[in-house]
């Protein structure tokens, strides 16, 4: 089963991971990934994350559904925030649960690769001296080729 949440509110990584593991009946492995707001320049004041409300949820669900056809997964969870976030805040997390860790690791990587380039979010970095949209990196698009 997949749970997808797109929200502006913060989430509690420990509580989410604990609850996820608790409902992953029959699984022997849980893998989680968490993305944080990174300050590359030292003057980041905030990151604004825009999304396409009508499309976001269905795009993420389609990615989770595809992962479920490729690996044997007990559960998947994607939480992704939008709005204005401060440096070091949690942006998003994925969690995957499977009988064995290989499926859980691979599915988590797959979800991340596709969330980067196929989920309709756009990041803008707000610095002391101005604001700039984060450009998609060619490596991120290339990463899809490995699946």
């Amino acid at each position: 089963m997949s749970v997808v949440r797109v929200q502006s509110a913060p989430f509690d990584l420990g509580a989410e991971t604990g609850a996820f593991a608790a409902r992953a009946a029959g699984a022997g492995a849980v893998v989680t990934f968490t993305g944080l707001v990174r300050d590359d320049t030292g003057d980041l004041q905030a990151m604004e994350i825009e999304h396409y409300p009508g499309m976001t949820d269905r795009a993420i669900r389609a990615i989770c559904d595809e992962a479920a056809t490729r690996w044997s997964l007990a559960e998947t969870l994607v939480i992704h925030r939008h709005g204005r976030l401060a440096p070091n805040e949690l942006i998003m997390m994925v969690a995957t649960a499977a009988r064995h860790r290989a499926d859980a690791f691979a599915a988590a990587e797959y979800l991340m690769d596709y969330l980067k380039s196929r989920a309709p979010f756009w990041k803008k970095e707000i610095g002391a001296t101005g604001a700039a949209w984060v450009a998609a990196r060619p490596e991120d698009e290339d990463a899809l080729g490995r699946w």
């Binding site: 993305g35 009508g54 992704h80 942006i91 980067k116 196929r118 309709p120 979010f121 756009w122 998609a136």
Partner: peptide
């Protein structure tokens, strides 16, 4: 019914 234009996505 709806068409949307946007830059390459930067989720995650």
């Amino acid at each position: 019914r709806e068409v949307a234009f946007f830059p390459p996505m930067t989720g995650g």
